[in-house]
């Protein structure tokens, strides 16, 4: 019966505006990442998100050096530019040279990340107010989220929902069979670019909350969990968004129960927890159900062969 006081305590946290902002921010982020990540995963571009989040780092630092203060719109723009550039290079490099796609990703990721780290050191040396929170972009510092950040995150989530669900059949075709889509005169190139843009925005707003390193977990884990639970794209995308958003909320609340627990890692761990749960107990693809099905199949087999014995 100690559950009720704990719940009451958790709910009372919402009266703290700071907690509300952080919860709102991580919810929007998890939700956006779940939806965009589903498509990235299905197009086998899961690692592109990883490269892009690392590549957003120099953009963040440049945005700060430009304005000499922390402004979330400027950070979004800066991060989007370098992350977008990285996405472009990762796709193009294999065509220009003999480099394999995954090698190209690794080169782009490390180069941009190295550059970003150098720039962050420069930022740290400028004695301006507001720089304190900048190095937190590496591992995220959700506690530093302010109302303005949450507004930007909400706007990105809204844009994603609008763009994906208004044209859902088109995105389905684009993700499943882009070559065929082109023969039907679908603007596949434009959709590629637009999707990369959505991915970029998601990564850019996620940096402050969960950081460069953990961002890709939010893009990959909830969609993977959702994939285990369903065989329908519609359900998968909505589930992934839900699981991502829910993980954001739960992770944030967990991080407030003990002060100084970092929010980003707890959000990611929460998402991983659902994944492990689904991995074992998913109705059709889970380990447990597979074992049972095998047993069942074996027993049926046995009975059948038995019946042929006179």
């Amino acid at each position: 019966m100690r559950v009720i006081p704990v719940l009451a305590q958790l709910l009372s946290l919402f009266s703290d505006p700071n907690v509300r902002w952080v919860v709102g921010g991580t919810f929007f982020l998890g939700f956006s990442a779940g939806i965009v990540g589903s498509f990235a995963l299905l197009r086998r571009q899961a690692l592109l998100g990883d490269a892009m989040s690392h590549a957003a780092l120099p953009g963040v630092a440049l945005a700060f050096l430009f304005l000499l203060r922390k402004e979330s719109m400027a950070i979004l723009v800066g991060a989007s530019i370098t992350a977008g550039l990285a996405a472009y290079l990762s796709v193009r490099l294999p065509r220009w040279t003999r480099v394999k796609p995954e090698t190209a990703l690794a080169i782009v990721l490390t180069t941009f990340f190295g550059f970003g780290t150098v720039l962050l050191t420069v930022v740290a040396k400028t004695q301006s107010a507001g720089q304190s929170g900048l190095d937190s972009f590496l591992f995220g510092q959700a506690a530093s989220l302010v109302w303005r950040d949450v507004q930007v995150m909400g706007a990105v989530a809204f844009l994603i929902v609008l763009a994906i669900f208004a044209f859902f059949p088109a995105w389905k075709l684009w993700a499943f069979d882009p070559l065929y889509a082109r023969t039907l005169h679908y603007p596949v190139r434009a959709m590629d670019i637009f999707f990369t843009l959505l991915l970029t925005f998601t990564v850019a707003v996620g940096l402050e909350a969960v950081g460069v390193v953990l961002m890709s977990a939010l893009l990959i884990t909830p969609p993977l969990t959702a994939r285990l639970l369903t065989d329908r794209l519609e359900t998968m995308v909505i589930l992934a968004g839900g699981i991502g958003g829910f993980s954001g909320v739960v992770g944030t609340l967990l991080s407030t129960t003990y002060p100084r627990f970092p929010t980003g890692p707890l959000v990611v761990l929460t998402a991983s927890f659902w994944f492990v749960l689904a991995w074992f107990f998913a109705p059709k693809r889970g380990l447990v159900s597979r074992v049972f099905r095998k047993r069942y199949a074996a027993s049926v087999q046995h009975d059948n062969t038995g019946s042929f014995v006179p």
Binding site: R44, K172, L173, F176, D177, R227, L233, T235
Partner: peptide, 22 residues
């Protein structure tokens, strides 16, 4: 050319043949 593990049903795929008109 495609990923057969993709979460769509047989009918979903056949319906894609209509997308050019839509």
């Amino acid at each position: 050319e495609v990923d057969w593990d993709f979460p769509v049903t047989v009918r979903d795929v056949v319906l894609m043949g209509r997308y050019g008109r839509l």
